[in-house]
Amino acid sequence: MSPTDSARSAAPEISVRQRRGIRRTTWAVSLLALAVYFGYMIVTFMHMHR
């Protein structure tokens, strides 16, 4: 499958502005998920060493 195939079904009419928004939101949400993961590990770890 060529990249074009997936890009085609992936929304040909997406504007550059929207693409930028997609990139930013993806980063933000992914970092949020990672922060939650490590945040809880750290909180638990601290609890363990009390």
Binding site: M1, T4, D5, S6, R8, S9, P12, R19, I22, R23
Partner: peptide, 29 residues
């Protein structure tokens, strides 16, 4: 998704992949 993919996407709007590829490589929601 990079800008370079934006070209050449207007052709064949109703192009639908056939056979197992349609499912294994699926990107259609």
């Amino acid at each position: 998704m990079t800008e370079s993919h934006e070209t050449a996407v207007h052709a064949e709007h109703d192009h639908k992949p056939h056979g197992w590829r349609r499912w294994v490589f699926a990107t259609n929601h």
